[in-house]
Nucleic acid binder design. Structure first.
Lengths: 204, 204
DNA sequence: GCTCAATCTTGACGATGGAAAGAGGCAGAA
DNA sequence: TTCTGCCTCTTTCCATCGTCAAGATTGAGC
């Protein structure tokens, strides 16, 4: 078969190329429209080529989800550091970073927090997901360092659930159907401030 | 082909049978493992039989999701009516019903609030989903009838997001990995009471 | 009892994930 | 340098999927 220089027999960076094309495909077609063969096509290789780099389609999805959690952690940390207003401001900033990542990568976000991802049971996936949870718990700890363990857990649950729930409902179309992007951001920020206020008050 | 009395040529209740087998299959295999042919197999008909009752696999999924929202509304109403403690107690009860439905039908719940469901654009689906949102808004209205519209919306977002977020994270394995079922219920109730407290306080 | 439309079966098509077998190319040993 | 072995990729094949088209079956209404 004829083969140009741009398409040598050995790709060289196929794993990375598959991750890149896979991520784009995921956002385009959603989880149910995601196919391994289309990933391979976009990477310019045959449909069986991915097999060497990823044992199965779930293995590739697992990698995408794990990298998503890494990026999510970065987004949370970046926004938290940029925020003003001390520990409570940092908590709000974390929420902003969380929502911004989800809004920018809706299909990936859904994959990361889907039941299917949970079944993947990849070590990298559980590790990176745990890092995100640790970041969140640390932010709560910073706001109410002297509260009891029970209250800390309750506020961790509460804060995490409200941020995650809000952006999830928004991306699923259950919230703000006809609102403008600007109005939705305002609603998000309003929710974040109410959340932070609740946490602060719980600290005594 | 030989055909027993129990398997006549015309099924008679095929639509309902497909909904039933489909729902069971969904919980067993998850969204990605859901196939139309397996639904047909379990209903005892050929693989092409469903076509007459459902235009496509998405059409069947849409029906499942719509019925899920109906059941969710019933679960919320039932628990809210059973609850004591006035309007605030009713709000908590609604949350209990919401979480109980989700815990009892995790895959269906995920389907109902998935991006794919959003793409289905079925009229029945949007209607039943809207009913659930209206129930929730009414419960908030009952707790803080004299608050401003802005505060009502903020608390509707906040309450809905925290309940939805908590049970979603729980079902996805992001919360309470090794906790007992009893401990998780306690965490859920703790979150619900914190949620109700925040709403009540927001009312002035 | 006949007709006909609704319902179901059979068979086919293109697409998918995965396995098996072979071809190509690089790196280290001779 | 040449050869050898292994990693990578292609080709081919299989079972399964959703969907369509065509034929078989049945019950309801004339």
């Amino acid at each position: 078969m004829e083969r140009s220089k741009a398409q040598p027999y050995h790709h060289g960076q196929l794993r990375e190329a598959l991750v890149t094309s896979g991520r784009a495909l995921l956002e385009e077609k959603g989880i149910r429209g995601f196919t391994l063969r289309e990933c391979a096509r976009r990477a310019g290789v045959s449909h069986a080529a991915p097999a060497y780099h990823f044992a199965s389609i779930d293995d590739l999805l697992s990698e995408l989800a794990a990298r998503g959690f890494d990026e999510l952690a970065v987004a949370m940390t970046t926004e938290a550091n940029r925020a003003e207003g001390g520990a409570a401001g940092g908590l709000i900033g974390q929420g902003v970073g969380y929502m911004a990542f989800a809004a920018g990568n809706p299909a990936l976000f859904q994959l990361m927090f889907s039941r299917e991802a949970n079944r993947l049971e990849s070590a990298a996936l559980t590790t990176t997901a745990e890092k995100v949870r640790a970041l969140h718990a640390a932010a709560i700890e910073g706001v109410i360092p002297h509260a009891s363990g029970e209250i800390k857990q309750r506020m961790t649950d509460f804060a995490g659930a409200s941020v995650h729930g809000f952006i999830s409902l928004l991306l699923d179309g259950q919230i703000g159907g006809k609102d403008s992007s600007r109005a939705l951001k305002a609603r998000g920020l309003s929710l974040l401030s109410a959340m932070a206020e609740t946490v602060v008050r719980a600290g005594g």
